[in-house]
Write a protein that binds this DNA or RNA. Structure first.
Length: 637
RNA sequence: GCUCCCAUAGCUCAGUAGGUAGAGUGCAUCCAUGGUAAGGAUGAGGUCACCGGUUCGAAUCCGGUUGGGAGCUCCA
């Protein structure tokens, strides 16, 4: 019987029923057959050996595609599992799950002895051996009973649990390669010899199925690429990313420090304080232009306020408490309740709304010790927070304005970002109908602005749905920074109201928003983003005056004072060192402008300018240099 | 919080048979007075994170505590 196969280019070819992806690839070209590692049958990824009984749309999957790479990495995970079983014993190693992730794969295993980096090397060697053996990888369908029997014989409780949890009617498959087999949906490469370049990266603990009530397994991370050069490039990227680590750069550039006396709480050194002040001032100016009013609220407020706001119920495990004069107080984990009190301090008319209250609010949250990570995850941080009190009819316009503000600010840093809409979580507060209304409002704005977004079902805050802005850092990790949250609950809890046109009381709606999110974390992200070479407007020291020798002290002082008077953050390096030495040091400090002074400059009232990233850009007179630096600062480039 | 790893001079790190510590850099002093990424000499600087145990003797071995790292979980 003949069947018709439709290829991606629209061509239709006839084959005998029972043909395979492999055979179809071969019929197209021998090269394609060599490169085929899987196929897509009506959009579903399958093995190259998969028999095709009926007419279908078929696509040959090669390593160049995303699907192909995933198959490749998945097979590498199996290869690793096989190597581990060979080394440590078939029954001694219990396999959990071994999925493909962003830049590689991992496998969770249960094994008595903790694995060390030396073990990883041993496993890699064994993996190489199995590649040499070029074992064919084949698929077989088994019944649920048979699967339970096989993994029961293997004494592998993890796989048995997986099998038992698979829904009825699902086809169970096992993939074999030599003596090794694994329960797996597949598909996989045709044989182990197809794997060319891989590397095991690290081993760490991971709870079985991500639940801390379950047993802790060992997770081995690895990565694999079709070509050695690609693997090398990836490993090189990881090295480069390490050099940009904000914890390392923060120390080197003296931006901030940490102390055993306050784990997870950053100390800002003078350089970091300058940077942070610039970030705050930048946001502050834009907010004033947009008619926000800035406030400050107490760090510690009575516990009953937090009970009223719902934070006690939903958030107390992350809060710090204290007792003073027999009264219980809490250190604020969020700024909203304070802003609610400010709103209630006055009677408001509908004519006043929207009211936009902003605060650079320092909050404290008790994070797990194991969750702390430099500036990225801390226990006290400053939010560039604001609460907008609006009429229901103003919701969409106000949200639209916030989105524009966020976009404007991110553009200055050159960040690309992703937008996510998070909907009602399980422990939500309030009427589901209000939630639906709020979610619809957020969707409307995003759609109207033509912004692409992903929906995260159930990931909203307990008081309302939110739009989150995720930026991508140098390590390609995505960080949630900006957020816009709609809140119908807080106005209820605090009995907020305004007097309407009808002279009656009405409920305003609250919009929470942040752009940097955490200023502290934003500084961490910026440090990695710029690799410590901050643009002039953010640089703690914008210019350094460097004399060729101590003979020019007077002129150096004169120049320095002129720059200071122009508002430039300048330092003079009057140490009795050689020019090259001082330049090297300023270079390591990543200072944007070095102003070199010697006899030529003094006698002509000029400066020799050395610009970061460009080198010596020649001699300029003092005022022109000042203007050039000021221009660069203003440009924020 | 949990699992594994780590903690030596301000910083980056050696110290791999248990015999009370070393380099580079930085710092101080002196010499050298210089033109775009490191001139030379001398010197100061350490309860080897903390507490306890084993031992004649512990930076080194064992236990605990604190802090850090890689993850799990949660979030900004």
């Amino acid at each position: 019987m003949l069947i018709q196969i439709t290829l991606p280019d629209g061509a239709v070819r006839e084959y005998a029923s029972g043909t395979t992806i492999e055979a179809i690839a071969e019929s197209i070209s021998p090269g394609l057959r060599k490169n085929a590692i899987a196929g897509k049958l009506n959009g579903k990824v399958v093995d190259v050996y998969h028999p095709i009984e009926e007419s279908a749309a078929v696509e040959i999957v090669t390593l160049d595609s995303k699907d192909g790479l995933e198959v490749y990495r998945h097979s590498t995970a199996h290869l690793m599992a096989q190597a581990i079983k060979r080394i440590y014993g078939n029954k001694e190693v219990k396999l959990g799950i071994g999925p493909v992730i962003e830049d590689g794969f991992y496998y969770d295993i249960d094994i008595v002895n903790p694995l060390t980096p030396e073990d990883l090397k041993k496993i890699e060697k064994e993996m190489e051996r199995i590649i040499q053996e070029n074992l064919p990888i084949s698929r077989r369908v088994i019944s649920r009973e048979k699967a339970l029997q096989i993994f029961g014989d293997l004494e592998d409780p993890l796989k048995l649990e997986l099998i038992n949890d698979l829904p009825e009617g699902v086809e169970l498959t096992i993939y074999d390669q030599g003596e090794f087999f694994d329960l797996c949906r597949g598909p996989h490469l045709p044989s182990t010899g197809r794997i060319k370049a891989f590397k095991l990266l690290s081993v760490a603990g991971a709870y079985w199925r991500g639940n801390s009530d379950n047993k802790m397994l060992q997770r081995i991370y690895g990565t694999a690429f079709p070509k050695k050069a690609q693997l090398d490039e990836h490993l090189h990227f990881l090295e480069e990313a390490k050099k940009r680590d904000h914890r390392k750069l923060g120390k080197e550039l003296k931006l901030f420090m940490f102390s055993d006396e306050a784990p997870g709480m950053p100390f800002y050194l003078p350089n970091g304080t300058t940077l942070r002040n610039e970030l705050e001032q930048f946001a502050r100016r834009l907010q004033i232009e947009r008619e926000y009013k800035e406030v400050r609220t107490p760090f510690i407020m009575n516990q009953r306020l937090w009970e009223q706001s719902g934070h006690w119920e939903h958030y107390h495990e992350n809060m710090y408490f204290t007792e003073v004069d027999d009264n219980k107080f809490a250190l604020k984990p969020m700024n909203c309740p304070g802003h609610m009190l400010i709103y209630k301090n006055d009677l408001h008319s509908y004519r006043e709304l929207p009211i936009r209250i902003a605060e650079f609010g320092q909050v404290h949250r008790h994070e797990f010790s194991g969750a702390l990570n430099g500036m990225m995850r801390v226990r006290t941080f400053c939010q560039d927070d604001a609460h907008l009190f609006v009429l229901p009819s103003q919701i969409e316009e106000e949200i639209s304005k916030v989105i524009s503000l966020i976009d404007l600010i991110y553009q200055v840093f050159g960040f690309s970002y992703r937008v996510e809409l998070s909907t009602r979580p399980e422990d939500s507060m309030g009427d589901p109908a209000l939630w639906d209304q709020a979610e619809t409002a957020l969707k409307n704005v995003l759609d109207a602005k033509g912004i692409a977004y992903r929906v995260n079902e159930g990931d909203g805050a307990f008081y309302g749905p939110k739009i989150d802005f995720h930026i991508l850092d140098a390590l390609k990790r995505s960080w949630q920074c900006g957020t816009i949250q709609l809140d119908f609950q807080m106005p209820e809890k605090f009995d907020l109201n305004y007097v309407g046109e009808d002279n009656q009381k009405h409920r305003p709606v609250v919009i929470h928003r942040a752009v940097y999110g955490s200023i502290d974390r934003f500084i961490g992200i910026l440090t990695e983003h710029y690799a410590g070479a901050f643009p002039a407007w953010l640089s703690p020291v914008q210019a350094k005056v460097i004399p060729v020798s101590i003979a020019f002290e007077g002129y150096v002082t004169e120049v320095t004072e002129k720059l200071l008077a122009a508002g430039i953050r300048v330092e003079a390096d009057q140490r009795n060192e050689k020019l090259g030495y001082k330049i090297r040091e300023a270079q390591l400090e990543k200072i944007p402008f070095m102003l070199v002074i010697g006899e030529n400059e003094r006698s002509s009232d000029t400066l020799s300018v050395r610009k970061r990233g460009e080198g010596d850009i020649g001699t300029h007179d003092i005022d022109a240099t000042i203007q050039m630096i000021l221009q660069e600062i203003r440009n924020k480039a």
